[in-house]
Write a protein that binds this DNA or RNA. Structure first.
Lengths: 281, 281
DNA sequence: CCTATCGGTTCAAATAATGAACCTTTATTT
DNA sequence: AAATAAAGGTTCATTATTTGAACCGATAGG
């Protein structure tokens, strides 16, 4: 409620209050608000000041600070005592390890990704779905000099990546709804720009079991991805081969498509063997 | 409030409502309550049902569920669609990666820990402070057959480990207050059992710059640890050599003490070089 | 068939979150 | 050096959210 206009919210129906990045559409619980602050951090801005976080997320400064304090109490953020900037906290490391113990996505993927990278000579990465966000969790870069570099933790827009397409194709209905409702990112001039086109590509991927993407994410990079399916049959992530476009032709795509599908199946099998069912004593 | 006893709460003053693990001392914000639920998961119980989480944390079932829903919306927990059990969610992987990008504790420690393990022939682990919790974040096990195994993500009670002692010795005043207020864990008959003894050991460590622990965590395991100090001079974690007690004598302790101090300094140096100061444009 | 327990839901009552205005410090401009 | 701007942080009356006892439906056991 920064502007007087916001006061008359009811009269004009629903106002979009948050600026730029803070895209909280409907009512969020306090907890969701706090957690959404964590998404303000990324690789290029690992540390942020209070005002910056408040502005980006659209919350009041006092509110933002209180939320950050709560997050800090749990070790989810910490404040540099000198610069007063906030950054992600150490509790995340422990919880991520525990997550891996319960559902060893990275640990299972690692050898399979490494193998696939060695076989194909290309960079291979695995990404995981978290809500309506897809981001890379493990990468093995090609050994070749001319290769694609992918940073860990990169967010992959659904409409700009092969991984995104296959996740939509094999994800839940609610994921598709969420993704189709978002405005489509436009990272290159090859990025899928229309909803109709996106839906068509998703339907295609559902048929073939994999998807190819030609420079939709970055110019000169093409990739082929297959979904990783949980025991329930729904996609929990994707595995993708990313190559310089110069090395890719129709035959390569077919070969890589078969390879990612096989690798995805191996990962799914590894995840299928769940940890011990607990007694809940 | 399942028991009739709880009904008469007011009459007996303040009851300790939460059972065993749910140790929320003072008033917690809603956000802190939600985050505290994540601590109900550990290596031995990676998945939990709603009622179990509610019981352990001392919150109402409806409240617990709403908090879990908020956490799930952010991908911090997820629910197995079949078993209905909750487990830690995939967002933690991404955020942990981002944390590492901002403050590369594990990445910096890895080679140093590996080297130290190779040099000493013993298991070496690094642990990180998150609030008043210390837990292992990286481990390199000894190559020898007779060795100490340490699981990643293990919580290290301050009074039972060398790492805990040095963290108290070089941590913040508030950390000491928090740790000294907690009841002391009793993992073996060697665990430090009195507050006076604990304080004495902490003072000693502050003098020598390292601490040794003889079977306080597990019988037959001795360890030597040094604190890892941030730019601010406060401990952010510790590095520790864990050996079978049979291989440890006074001379070994001195040697290992010097080794962990050197390794800790190298890690601190690696962390000192901070990521680019952002423009906050 | 009854009972216990599970996950999940409801809605009045109680509590906690909110944000405009304020303070303090620090860096920049004049 | 004074003035200004912008940062982090704090306050407290207003407001909206959280809370939890009671409830439902399903499943499992005796």
């Amino acid at each position: 409620m920064q502007t007087p206009t916001a006061r008359v919210k009811k009269q004009v129906g629903r106002l979009v209050e948050a600026s730029a990045a803070g895209a909280q559409s409907e009512a969020m619980s306090t907890v969701e608000k706090a957690l959404s602050l964590l998404d303000r951090f990324d690789r290029s801005t690992p540390e942020l000041g209070l005002s910056e976080i408040a502005k980006q997320s659209g919350f009041d400064k006092a509110t933002t600070r209180r939320l950050l304090l709560s997050l800090a109490a749990g070790g989810f953020v910490e404040q540099d005592s000198e610069s007063r900037l906030y950054r992600l906290g150490p509790s995340l490391l422990r919880l991520a390890r525990l997550r891996e113990a319960a559902f060893p996505f990275i640990d299972v993927s690692r050898p399979i990704v490494d193998d696939l990278s060695a076989e194909t000579g290309e960079t291979v990465h695995v990404s995981a779905l978290a809500g309506a966000t897809l981001s890379t969790i493990y990468v093995c870069e090609s050994a070749r000099a001319h290769r694609v570099a992918v940073a860990l933790g990169t967010r992959l827009p659904f409409n700009c990546t092969a991984s995104g397409i296959v996740c939509l194709a094999f994800g839940t209905e609610s994921l598709r709804r969420a993704a189709f409702a978002q405005p489509l990112a436009k990272l290159t001039r090859h990025s899928i720009a229309s909803l109709a086109e996106l839906k068509r590509r998703v339907a295609e991927a559902r048929q073939s079991g994999f998807a190819a993407n030609d420079q939709g994410f970055e110019d000169g990079v093409s990739s082929v991805a297959a979904p990783i399916l949980a025991a329930s049959g729904e996609a929990v992530g994707a595995i993708s081969i990313a190559s310089p476009t110069a090395r890719v032709d129709a035959k390569t795509i077919e070969r890589h498509g078969a390879a990612v599908r096989a690798a995805a199946a191996r990962i799914a099998a590894g995840l299928g063997a769940r940890p011990q069912r607990l007694k809940t004593a």
